[in-house]
Design a protein around this nucleic acid. Structure first.
Lengths: 223, 223
DNA sequence: GTCTATATCCTGATAGAC
DNA sequence: GTCTATCAGGATATAGAC
């Protein structure tokens, strides 16, 4: 932990604190104190707090998205691009994997992801779009191949449902791993930690069934 | 808009700004300027910024949850407590309704709800738990009646999926209604606004299918 | 209840020695 | 690259006149 370079130490500390207190709720002083580096180091290495946020943002998300695209590529070159379960696996597994493989960071990773999705202030909007654009485009296309009978609008909404499931589930997953708080209170010991495989399967079986559901009537009903 | 009392004006302004800039990214000065009240009024009426956050939080969520419980009550007294689609309607419709019935606030309502779900810092944890505990308990029970064959663990996770779908979908819904930003970029004109009925049906058909999916194998697979 | 004025502290950022 | 010292501004909160 201490053998990292200064920028890495800063980003490690920032990642944890951002997850806990939010981007604007975390001061540079808190970050540099936790990272045990000088206050001026943040501006020296990153230029500004905003730039640091973007860097943390990107470091967290890019590897996951790269792996998603690589897995989708492989599916398509091996002719399994229309296997819905496999496509969902390519979407979900990299995120679940990244989150669960380092248990010591499991409490902050998902929480940070949730904040990334929730906080789309103007200053972060462009970064968000840039980081997820390719993944969104490619997987939307894949869904089009897997579910050709669905209208484009229905498919687009269901894609958003997929993302929502993942973000919220992983947040909850991270929350489970924090011993001091069972925040929502409405689960006893029910939500025990599971393996990456089990958890990914859980997501896929639910999501695939939802995606395959017949489209609802879009005709107005009179109440 | 101007005939509200001072506390109401403060909460209206705070709600909008919290949605846009986050809880900690919004200063009391920004709130009181927008609300056109004196800076000291916040502390006079609410005691502190934290208390204001909780008040806004509660004002936004409580009516929705009250309506959810009322609808569920009615279902159960009329013997439709095991109608999964109806139960989901009771969960989703109040939120969709509240968000879409005031189009002028649609850009901030969902965003605020998303932030509420994402920002579970220690200071807001207790408030969150308190506001959602009863709804979570009651609907978990309802799911148990609707889906008796599912394991308790599987049901608990799927309940979280339900919440994730709603939060993310409504965030996106709110984002659509903002003219100046098509943030994620991966939807052209596909996601047009829909009526409350249409959008609720969309949520229900996806969610119900997911809930009814056979439980995945929870046996470890060797990779 | 509302307002002005202010206290106290913390923020991000930077200048300049080493 | 790292550090100290400091700036200018903004934050919450409050005291006290009206």
């Amino acid at each position: 932990m201490t053998d990292h370079s200064t920028p890495d130490r800063i980003m490690d500390a920032a990642e944890t604190l951002f997850a806990e207190k939010g981007f604007r709720g975390t001061s540079l002083r808190a970050i540099t104190t936790t990272a045990d580096v000088n206050l001026a180091a943040v501006n020296y290495h990153f230029g500004s707090k905003e730039a640091l946020i973007r860097a943390v943002f990107e470091r967290k998300v890019s590897p996951i998205n790269r792996e998603r695209l690589a897995r989708l590529d492989k599916l398509e070159t091996t002719g399994r691009g229309c296997d819905l379960d496999a496509v969902l696996d390519a979407l979900y597994r990299p995120a679940v994997n990244r989150v669960m493989e380092h248990p010591e960071h499991m409490h902050c990773g998902p929480q940070l992801l949730a904040r990334i999705h929730a906080d789309r202030s103007d200053s972060l909007q462009a970064t968000f779009t840039e980081l997820f654009a390719e993944v969104a485009r490619r997987f939307m296309l894949a869904l089009e191949h897997c579910l050709p009978d669905l209208s484009a609008e229905e498919r687009a909404w269901r894609f958003h449902f997929l993302i929502g499931i993942m973000v919220h589930a992983m947040t909850e997953l991270g929350r489970q791993s924090r011993p001091h708080a069972s925040p929502t209170g409405f689960h006893g010991e029910l939500l025990r930690p599971a393996s990456v495989d089990v958890f990914t399967s859980r997501l896929i079986s639910f999501a695939a069934a939802g995606l395959r559901a017949p489209a609802p009537d879009t005709v107005e009903k009179t109440p």
